[in-house]
Design a binder for these strands. Sequence first.
DNA 1: ATTGCCCCTGAACGGTCGTTCATTTGGCCG
DNA 2: CGGCCAAATGAACGACCGTTCAGGGGCAAT
Lengths: 217, 217
Amino acid sequence: MTKRKLVRTTATAPVIVEREQRPPIEAIRAAAFQQFAERGYPVVTVRDIMKACGLTQGALYNHFKSKDELLHDIIASTQGELERVCQQAVAGAGDDPRAKLAAFVRAYVMRHCRLRVEALVANREIGWLDAGRVADIRRSRRAIRDVVVAILVQGVENGVFDPPLTGGRRDLKAIAMALLDQWTHVSMWYGPDGEITEEEMAGLYANMTLRAVGARP
Amino acid sequence: MTKRKLVRTTATAPVIVEREQRPPIEAIRAAAFQQFAERGYPVVTVRDIMKACGLTQGALYNHFKSKDELLHDIIASTQGELERVCQQAVAGAGDDPRAKLAAFVRAYVMRHCRLRVEALVANREIGWLDAGRVADIRRSRRAIRDVVVAILVQGVENGVFDPPLTGGRRDLKAIAMALLDQWTHVSMWYGPDGEITEEEMAGLYANMTLRAVGARP
DNA sequence: ATTGCCCCTGAACGGTCGTTCATTTGGCCG
DNA sequence: CGGCCAAATGAACGACCGTTCAGGGGCAAT
């Protein structure tokens, strides 16, 4: 068997759009999102993406400098919106760390349920970007994590959170990482066709989170 | 720029072993683990793997039928051991669901810290296996998840767990998924050179988990 | 009608891929 | 020492990759 076409196990036959009404650059972005999510960046070819929106391979380079830039473009826009959504949620939740944390979790989980294709690509395919392009995305992720850490710090200082100790200290950064892992990977298994809604997911995760950090009732 | 070699951003120069003492099949497995973890299955070439253990590309096919089979081999062995470790941990923890759950989390997290290269490959690269080969691994994962669900069910029945409700019901499967996501992805960021030991990580996660499911003290 | 411009086409380029296979190697047994 | 065979070699094969580019079409402005 020679160089068989590599596909993810969840792959479905690429759907060729009969006629695109959107401007080509947005059709390309959408097609790339779909294909990267289903099959993974390295095995999705430029020809695949362009065929999915009814064009030929060369046309990509009228809109993006390279396949790399296309990936960075769609990840960066997703990440930027996520950061904005998170900060808005916290800003509009008053001053109680419990309300802040709950609002953050709800916004974060809800978004990862609703836009799970985008979240999946942003989280799974980021490793293919070269070091120059990945820097701003990593910065944005650190910023989001630091928002969580700040809420935890405030809650501990106010005495409304009592998170577990780690070897005698409180490692709030490790706790934030553990929580973010949990919230993020909803996008890996949540399906809107299931029997549980996005709002219920958000509520469940917010509840588990507040318990995990020892929030006072 | 034409077909530049695709690397993950965390990639380091492949180290060529000067002389392998292990039997070749094990050297191949080890090299493949390392390379798949660092750079990802689709971009690691057969030539890369074999060069890393001091052989040439053709020699792979004296030990494995294909690159696919090599990936399945290393994932399946990791997964099998994980399932065994989890079941042993539960079996040796008495009958209290709290002790069972804590033992499970500790074993699971400890393993994902210690063998994070293996865990990373098993969790990130599984999607490249074809449907036939992936079935037994998915079965093993479901089995592990069901162990968690069974502990939760027992704990709720005994009245020692009081997990959050989801839209009026108790969705213990969703809770198990959320917890497993959290435990699993330790392998994505835990570094043994950090200031927190594996045992401390295991303790932290066990503590957060028991709080999240509302374990009575 | 003509120009200019944007966008698209599709062949072509140089390269890498997984896999095969005829040949060579090297150690062990008689 | 000679024969044997598992294991390794490295060239070769057919296929596909990202990217380039000369050519062409459509449409608004002149």
